[in-house]
Design a protein around this nucleic acid. Structure first.
Length: 960
DNA sequence: CGGGGTACTTAGAACTTTCCAT
DNA sequence: ATGGAAAGTTCTAAGTACCCCG
């Protein structure tokens, strides 16, 4: 890594180091420097890039949507509709309104769906028009395409999409494709600018230059440094290839700096405005009349320093950001052992722990796993009937066998060769192994992504011998196909295993579980969730991850920290190895951990979901959500008041909270720029929402369009209250795409506030709360006592689906979706024909019966009639399942069921309506929710009185 | 107060097994 | 039996939240 040193900028050591990772390939020179020098820019640039990506992606998905619409009714569309409906429901008033309505809704569902669909279609059309417009000259980069491919499975369609767009702007395309981000950056910025103009044509357009100057004179500390930073960047950039391009658009960042400053500082104007009643709450009235810009200034001014956008404060610090990576880099010195730092703490705890060992009641120690190996007949530990410990410790005794290390690499048979430049080439073991990782993925879209390939190549070269390194320089000349074929074949063989082989394998696996899959915790045997150390491979990030393709190294025992009781049988490291450390820390639940080299994150071995430790936490989570129910009215009142606050930060906080509550958005922590660009509520940026005074007959519509966790797109159009809308206009004012929408807010601030409103409250509680509440309400609404069980289950699934939509839990449409949909369609058509035919025959027979009336004819007629009935039924069934399928195309029910829905609601529902629990929860789920199954009675209600969760929470103090 | 680290939950994709129609 | 889809399981990435430190 010493090569890196060359590139470090003065005073910027950390970055240099961190950046080293990606650059570490070689003695890179100019190229590397380039990277480095761009670094400051990276953030912005990445954003730009990503924004584009988003747009592209969205564009394509809109198209997809349109397509879908044309073809058959509504996967997306209906879901959007539902989403909206559900979401609106979450604000109180709307909620009750909705309740009243939703019965009707049920009936009208179809109609509505249809009309909604149409609306959406229009919207989408509009949008895509807009997009086209905006991006008329915009390139659709290679990357984008790949991403699209990932998300939208439908390759054929996509291909045609791609071709279309390629036709449009192919030339530009190609260029941009090849020269990754940097060169196109400038253009992008410009386009953004333009787009921005188009979009908010009303918003003031200042003259960047003047303001820049002003800016400089002012020198507020923070801005100053930030500004400097930018300048630095600019200057450095000049040395770069893309000088001109970079320079041109550069005013933008300055502009936005200026804007911010302006809001804060332009004293005269401020004063003028200040006199205004803004201080008083009723601001909103004025809101409409006073030019927003004025208002804003006023407000800002008053708020003074802490009203400075956080970003500004932060920005200064952004430089050292890449420290984390440092660690990551360090990867190579895996062997440094750290002394047990935490020991001290633990010692005390230890004492207690020892005693406990002997308490072990039913369960035997893991030492005799073979006896107890079988999962089933294990007596259940009804921990929920015990009193909770209140010392914050997680265990007093913990014993396990340590994690199972990944299997050693097996070399390829000698006839399976790697080819370079058409020539077969021998590879060293490690090089071959890594080549194999890539070869396995050959038919995965990943391998067509530039970032992926670049990262892979860089890391691959790191493991090569000097000789190999010399030869293998170009990925394009690498031919992995034989290796790929070998692994494919191996897969085939695996599939074709005989029963005996399968059985043997299964037994082997079970034996491993018996040995490694269990631990003894406070005298009880509990399953471990992930006892296997993650095997080496290529990092597969989600979305447009800058680190995709990097080599995830093999984790060695020397990397692994073991956590267990001192007086337990300490797990033995594989022979010839030792653990990095063995510690006994009862304040945590993990049994082993290690640091993964790509992102530098700690990975943990923990208990499985059915364990006490997890179950208790889960229970507690739902109790917290129920507690929120007791306070939610008050909290909602509060944030509504806060919309009128004179302080910008409070307004932002209040609006963000409103979104979190109403739309179940995630909190939105800040992210490093070496991760995919995704956002949550607090990290929303200007470009993620579009405001429409009026849209599709609704007033004050906010259009959300951003990538959330896992780069899943969130698209929603929500009609909000006027004040919210006005506030959003205010927040967006004078900002560029790429700026934070809530520039005075982050998750810490929000959570701190929430905690003041209610003890233990955080942003994510709202998600849990609104999800569970929705389930409860929908179940109450949709379930008919006298429905047969299948109908009840359908109701349950519908309720579940409402939650999944609320939480935006999506999945890629199954690969086979179109195919299986088509075949379903075909079946339906066939069935229809059959029905028609049967009808004809039927009526003929009927005539015959009438005219002749022979017994035979009569019988035949009856028979036919019955057949007809049957056919009709079948047809209906098919239609129903088609609808269901379509609705579920991109919706994942599992996530909400597993993580957001208080299981007691479901259990109570089952008990109340006589539905067997197995219809709702499979075996694993039943294990996980055992506590709920045992304790919920038919009359359990999520919105009832919560139980006391923890000693601390017992004092129900939290009220005003 | 911000930055970095830690611990734990939440998430969708990929893979495996089971189920069902043929 | 077969093969394809659905259900279930495993895997690990990507979030949230909170703590500690300078």
């Amino acid at each position: 890594m010493s090569e890196m040193d060359d590139f470090s900028l003065p005073g910027d050591g950390t970055e240099a180091i961190s950046n080293g990772i990606p650059n570490g390939i070689s003695n890179g020179t100019s190229e590397h420097r380039e990277h480095k020098e761009h670094k400051h820019k990276h953030k912005d640039r990445d954003r730009e890039k990503d924004r584009h990506r988003d747009k592209d992606r969205h564009k394509s998905s809109h198209k997809d949507k349109d397509r879908d619409k044309d073809r058959h009714s509504s996967g997306h569309k209906s879901s959007h509709k539902d989403k909206e409906r559900d979401k609106e429901r979450s604000s109180d008033k709307e909620r009750s309104k909705d309740k009243v309505q939703s019965d009707k809704d049920k009936h009208k569902e179809k109609d509505r769906e249809r009309s909604e669909k149409e609306k959406h279609r229009d919207k989408d059309k509009e949008r895509s028009e807009k997009d086209k417009h905006r991006e008329k000259d915009k390139e659709r980069s290679e990357k984008d395409k790949h991403r699209d491919r990932d998300k939208h499975r439908d390759k054929d369609k996509e291909r045609s999409e791609r071709e279309k767009s390629r036709d449009k702007d192919k030339d530009r395309h190609r260029d941009d494709k090849k020269h990754s981000s940097s060169s196109s950056n400038g253009e992008k910025k410009e386009r953004d600018k333009e787009r921005d103009k188009d979009r908010h044509s009303t918003s003031s357009h200042r003259s960047p230059h003047k303001e820049k100057d002003r800016d400089r004179d002012r020198h507020k500390d923070k801005e100053k440094s930030r500004d400097k930073e930018k300048e630095k960047v600019k200057i450095e950039v000049k040395t770069e290839v893309n000088v001109e391009i970079e320079n041109e658009p550069d005013p933008i960042p300055h502009k936005d700096l200026v804007i911010k400053e302006e809001t804060i500082e332009s004293e005269e104007e401020d004063k003028l405005v200040i006199n205004e009643p803004i201080k008083e709450e009723p601001v909103e009235e004025e809101d409409d009349d006073i030019p927003l810009s004025h208002r804003k200034r006023i407000k800002d001014e008053e708020e003074d320093d802490d009203e400075k956008p956080l970003a500004i404060r932060k920005k200064v610090k952004t430089e050292p950001k890449e420290k984390k990576r440092k660690k990551v880099k360090e990867e190579d010195d895996e062997d440094d052992f750290k002394p047990e730092k935490k020991k001290v703490k633990k010692e005390k705890k230890e004492k207690k722990a020892r005693g406990a060992k002997l308490n072990s009641s039913q369960d035997s120690l893991p030492e005799s796993p073979s006896k107890k190996g079988k999962k089933e007949d294990e007596p259940v530990w009804k921990w929920w009937e015990e009193t909770k410990r209140d010392d914050g410790l997680k265990w007093t005794f913990l014993e396990h066998k340590g994690p199972l290390m990944a299997e050693a690499y097996v070399r390829l048979p000698s006839h399976v060769k790697f080819y370079y430049n058409g020539e077969p080439m021998e590879l060293s073991e490690e090089t071959e192994e890594v080549a194999g990782f890539y070869a396995r993925m050959l038919d995965h879209a990943y391998t067509t992504k530039e970032v992926f390939n670049t990262n892979f190549m860089r890391d691959w070269r790191k493991v090569m011998t000097p000789k190999e390194k010399e030869i293998i320089t170009d990925l394009k000349k690498c031919d992995f196909r034989r290796i790929h074929a070998f692994y494919v074949q191996q897969n085939e063989e695996r599939k074709n295993r005989t029963k005996e082989e399968r059985k043997a394998l299964k037994e082997k696996n079970e034996a491993l579980i018996v040995e490694y899959g269990w631990c003894n915790i406070d005298g009880h045997r509990q399953r471990i969730g992930n006892f296997k150390i993650e095997p080496p491979g290529l990092f597969r990030g989600r979305g447009e991850h800058p680190k995709q393709g990097m080599l995830k190294k093999r984790t060695m025992p020397e990397d692994v920290i073991i956590n267990c009781s001192k007086d337990s049988a300490i797990p033995k490291p594989p022979s010839g190895h030792k653990w990095k450390e063995v510690r006994a820390d009862p304040s945590v639940t993990w049994l082993a951990c290690w640091v993964e080299n790509v992102q530098g994150q700690t990975k943990y071995v923990m208990l499985n979901a059915a364990s006490k430790l997890k179950g208790e936490k889960d229970w507690q989570k739902y109790e917290m959500a129920r507690k929120l129910h007791q306070h939610v009215d008050r909290i909602r009142e509060q944030y509504r008041l806060d919309w009128k606050s004179k302080e910008m930060r409070i307004r932002q906080r209040a609006v963000a909270l409103y979104f979190i509550d109403k739309l179940a958005l995630r909190a939105g922590n800040e992210k490093d720029e070496d991760q995919a660009d995704t956002v949550g509520c607090c990290s929303l940026r200007v470009e993620h929402i579009t405001l429409h005074e009026e849209k599709n007959g609704k007033e004050y519509v906010v259009e959300f369009d951003f990538l959330g966790k896992d780069s899943i797109r969130y698209y929603n159009e929500v009609s909000v209250e006027r004040r919210v809308f006005k506030n959003l206009q205010l927040f967006k004012e004078n900002k560029e795409d790429g700026n934070d929408l809530f520039d005075r807010l982050n998750t810490q601030i929000l959570n701190k506030h929430l905690n003041e409103l209610m003890d233990g409250l955080t942003a994510k509680v709202f998600r849990t709360y609104n999800a569970s509440r929705t389930l409860q309400e929908q179940l109450d609404l949709l379930t008919n006592d006298d429905d047969p069980i299948p109908a009840k289950i359908l109701s349950y699934n519908r309720a579940n689906r409402a939650v999944a939509i609320l939480c935006n839990h999506q999945r890629a449409a199954p690969k086979t979706f179109d195919k299986s949909m088509a075949s379903l369609q075909k079946k339906m058509e066939d069935k229809k024909e059959q029905v028609e035919e049967a009808m004809k025959e039927c009526s003929q027979l009927k005539k015959a019966v009438k005219s002749f009336g022979s017994q035979k004819d009569k019988a035949a007629y009856e028979k036919k009639k019955k057949a007809l009935e049957r056919l009709k039924e079948q047809l209906e069934k098919l239609e129903l399942s088609a609808t269901d399928k379509e609705e579920n195309k991109t919706i994942a029910l599992g996530t909400s069921k597993l993580n957001y829905l208080d299981p007691r609601i479901s259990v109570a529902w089952c008990k109340k309506y006589g539905v067997p629990i197995e219809k709702v929860y499979n075996k694993t789920q039943r294990q996980k929710f055992q506590w709920a199954i045992e304790m919920a009675t038919a009359d359990y209600n999520f919105m009832g009185e919560p139980m006391n969760i923890k000693p601390e929470d017992e004092e129900e103090e939290e009220d005003e």
